[in-house]
Simulated assay, not measured.
Amino acid sequence: MRILYFIFALIFCSVSAQKILPLDTLKLKEAKDMLADDYGNLYIYTNKNFSLTKYDSLGKQIGKMMLTVPYKIQSVQNPLSVPLFSENAQEMKFVDQNLNEIQKVDFKQKFGFIKMAYAEDLQQLWLLDESTKRLIQYNFRNETTINSYPFDASFDDLMDLLVYENKIYVLTRKRILVYTFKFEKVFEAQVENGKRFRRENEFILVITDNSILRYVPEKEMVKIFEDPNAQIVDKNTLSYFEIKANNLYLYSLEKNKETKQQTEPDPKQKDTERDVEKSDEKRAEPDTPEGKLEKKTQEIEDKNPAESSLQKLIEDTSEVQTVGV
């Protein structure tokens, strides 16, 4: 009965954890990429006309930006300043919560060819300069180079770059690589259809076309979400998102946590079940004094329930103990 309860709880919570969000299927069909911020707002990038559109959680359009060349959206974790990098235009834009441009950083005048850029904060960029084979730490507020490190590597299908706690993370379509600033490789693993990094506090995540992986420092990549039928996946701190069959689905992390807790037996319940099992085992042993006492008590009750008084039970108990001990 308990097993059936857990099965029903799992099915109920799995279904309730999934929610279809109200967004036009035509817009989702044309989406090349999708990101979600922690307020539940969605950013849809369309490669067809290089447009970036922002919607709230109810599907209402908040802002739209038309671009002339392809741009890569780095992150929307700070919706007040969203960085977009264009290898074609050799520049990085920052847009506000309504997708209005608030700043542009032009790399053409100061650097060779920037293959990838990563905005560490609101004043520093990390630039991978392919022409000079260097990784450059650049303060774009005062237009000064802070540091420059030799980085002699050629990456096919380079997708993203991230720098965190003296480690350099490089993502291609097929691999994740982690380096020190001395260009020493400390980790490498295969990934399928890698798209971008996402950092949540000390955790480094990799977003692919239909899965999300978490990096275990210098050990392995652990898959935390996957749907082989998804077109696009993403997450914020509360939920997973996916576009599948031109519909947008949300999976609550809290619901998933509740499901796991409900399907795992409580430790106290486990102890109680164990005690009951031991009690049953002891009761099933007829050669022990306790077993003889139980047998004698049952015989008295079967013969004459009225005689099964406390005094009668005590007398027979003494007799059994004398024989058995």
Score class of each variant (00 low, 15 high):
D316T: 12
L26Y: 12
E258V: 13
L52V: 07
I7L: 11
D266A: 15
V191R: 02
L128D: 01
M159V: 06
P22E: 04
K48P: 00
K303I: 09
I102W: 07
G291I: 04
S131Y: 08
A117M: 05
Q123T: 10
F113M: 11
L128P: 02
N142C: 08
I136L: 06
V170Y: 01
N256M: 12
S309G: 14
D152G: 12
R141Y: 08
R196A: 07
K29C: 06
L293K: 08
T25L: 00
K185Y: 08
L127R: 01
L213Y: 04
S148T: 10
M159L: 07
G63Y: 03
M65C: 04
V82I: 15
F12M: 11
L205K: 04
G194V: 09
M34I: 15
E120H: 12
I168C: 05
F140M: 04
I11V: 15
E315H: 06
F241C: 09
Q90T: 07
N100E: 14
P70M: 09
V191Q: 03
D280G: 05
A89N: 12
R274Y: 11
S51P: 03
N246S: 12
Y138W: 12
E315M: 10
D227C: 01
E130L: 11
E299V: 05
E200R: 03
I243K: 01
F113V: 15
S81F: 01
P70T: 13
E277N: 01
I146V: 14
F111Y: 13
T317M: 10
I300G: 04
L293I: 08
K292G: 13
K167P: 10
L177S: 14
K32V: 11
S75P: 00
I212A: 02
F187I: 11
T25H: 00
T145E: 13
T317R: 14
L58C: 11
S308F: 09
A89L: 06
Q18A: 11
T25W: 01
K93V: 09
P265M: 00
T208N: 06
A230E: 10
R214Y: 00
K296E: 14
A306M: 13
I102F: 06
L125Y: 04
E315P: 01
Y179H: 04
K303A: 14
V216Y: 08
D157A: 13
R173I: 10
I204E: 02
K108G: 00
L313V: 15
R214W: 00
I224F: 08
T208D: 01
K19S: 14
T172Q: 10
F85T: 02
S148P: 01
P267E: 13
A245I: 00
Q137A: 04
D96H: 03
V320C: 01
S211Q: 12
K219A: 11
P83W: 01
R134L: 07
G59V: 10
A189V: 06
F107I: 09
V15W: 13
A31T: 03
V163P: 02
E285A: 13
P150D: 15
S308Y: 05
F6R: 15
T297N: 07
C13G: 04
E315G: 05
Q137S: 07
G194S: 12
I20A: 12
N210D: 15
V323L: 12
K255A: 10
